[in-house]
Design a protein around this nucleic acid. Structure first.
Ligand SMILES: NC(=O)c1ccc[n+]([C@@H]2O[C@H](COP(=O)([O-])OP(=O)(O)OC[C@H]3O[C@@H](n4cnc5c(N)ncnc54)[C@H](O)[C@@H]3O)[C@@H](O)[C@H]2O)c1
Ligand SMILES: NC(=O)c1ccc[n+]([C@@H]2O[C@H](COP(=O)([O-])OP(=O)(O)OC[C@H]3O[C@@H](n4cnc5c(N)ncnc54)[C@H](O)[C@@H]3O)[C@@H](O)[C@H]2O)c1
Lengths: 213, 213
DNA sequence: TTTATATCGAGAAAATTGTATCGATAAAAT
DNA sequence: ATTTTATCGATACAATTTTCTCGATATAAA
């Protein structure tokens, strides 16, 4: 069995997908081996940092050669839980919900959205990117029967807590939240916020500083 | 003039929008003053951390009372550059592009997407959420004339670098990138990646760890 | 009025994260 | 065959970020 480090920093975790995207691109181009130095150059990171990040996945390299790209991809995917797809329910088939439903690459990232839910009667019964839009009332029962672990929240902020409570009650273990609202979850449930506004904040703050000069 | 601290950490910058969302919610409920302790409780942060974050915006509180919510909102928005809207161009009117075009709250966050561009002839000429979809060839000229500072990249990864080069050539100063590709930009241009897969990586890694137990 | 308490603001301490150094090793160059 | 070079892996060091401590202050309670 592979023994993994007990703690991984969030920063490391967030850099791993970057490496993965790069590795897949390079492999398409026929690259077989890659060094931390090369990876670091692509992102303007420190090579040692890359090495440490890769170390957490359990990958081992060889001096003067680097790491085998194929092995690295497998190791990173394993580590992130992207080797087996997790089935997920999405609630809120609005603009963002539709974009997520239409994103084919999620399968590569271990995410398989199997159904959507909405409270809008006009949306219920339609199909979006080949997934049925179901009434919210059906979520608890279905989530249990289908062993759904991941719930995606794409409803307006004021309804987000209600949706989360429903999901948690239905046995969902991990929540990916797109609403800009602080959510309360019970111990043991995983909450991850995909906050676009945080990213935007960094952008506009930097831009403002540059423009003020 | 308000003298701002020279350096703000990215972490602080990313927490500020969280506070802002909370403050706006609380103000709707009639709250006038709020302490760092209260804010910290909402997010499970350390109160001192919140106090330091708020300090960077130039806000000052009073002992035993806390901060005036209204002042805090203004200060944070000022600091993030969300007090005046920045006009932006969006390239790639696909699933994600449409979601972004349809997001009304961006105005609150200082972002005003004024036009969309796409290379797909079937999309060009249509309107999405009341914004025209224009051919890519028109971008350089229009960006200059309209003094566009922000470019949003929502095209598939393999085309992202090309779009960025076009934007930079057109004088765009800041790029918000949604494609999972490492991009090269010249000195002085701001690049911010809105990488959803990073957030997903944290979620699935945590979930995998829990499920393995 | 006096005392208790919550909070700010500043600075110190601790923890975390990132960077540099160095020996070992494997390939390439001489 | 020997030297040089690139890289890994381990460890030490540095920077940053978070958390703790404490005095000052403003309100509320006694
Ligand atoms: N669109 C974006 O680009 C964007 C960007 C950042 C954040 N977000 C956030 O994502 C969330 C969704 O945004 P959107 O643009 O898709 O909004 P939207 O209004 O287009 O869609 C919301 C959908 O949720 C449904 N809904 C509302 N309440 C519900 C409930 N209680 N149960 C089930 N369904 C419910 C609505 O019927 C609608 O279909 C919001 O919280 C928004 O702030 C969106
Ligand atoms: N949809 C999602 O939920 C999601 C999530 C994460 C990341 N992303 C990323 O966002 C980007 C867009 O994703 P999407 O789902 O909207 O894809 P999409 O295929 O739906 O849309 C892409 C759009 O870009 C246009 N386009 C392609 N090349 C172009 C070019 N050179 N110039 C101008 N327009 C061009 C296409 O015509 C299309 O309209 C991708 O890089 C994707 O990886 C999307």
């Amino acid at each position: 069995m592979i023994s993994q480090p007990r703690v991984v920093s969030r920063s490391t975790l967030k850099r791993l997908p970057l490496y993965l995207h790069l590795l897949e691109k390079l492999m398409d181009q026929g690259v077989e081996n890659i060094s931390c130095t090369q990876i670091a150059q692509e992102f303007d990171f420190d090579p040692t940092q890359v090495r440490k990040d890769l170390e957490t996945t359990g990958a081992v390299g060889t001096a003067r050669i680097g790491f085998r790209a194929a092995t690295l991809v497998v190791k990173i995917k394993e580590f992130l839980g992207w080797d087996n797809a997790h089935d997920a329910f999405l609630v809120g088939a609005g603009n963002m919900g539709k974009a997520l439903l239409g994103y084919k690459d999620f399968e590569k990232y271990g995410l398989n959205i199997v159904a959507a839910f909405d409270k809008d009667a006009r949306k219920v019964g339609t199909r979006i990117f080949n997934r049925e839009v179901l009434p919210l009332a059906k979520l608890p029962n279905l989530a249990g029967r289908m062993h759904i672990n991941i719930g995606i929240v794409a409803v307006p902020a004021e309804y987000a807590q209600g949706v989360v409570d429903l999901m948690v009650g239905a046995g969902i273990r991990a929540i990916w939240n797109f609403a800009p609202a602080p959510l309360r979850i019970p111990e043991g449930v995983i909450l991850e916020n995909a906050r676009l506004t945080q990213s935007l904040a960094v952008l506009t703050n930097n831009l403002t500083k540059v423009l003020r000069k």
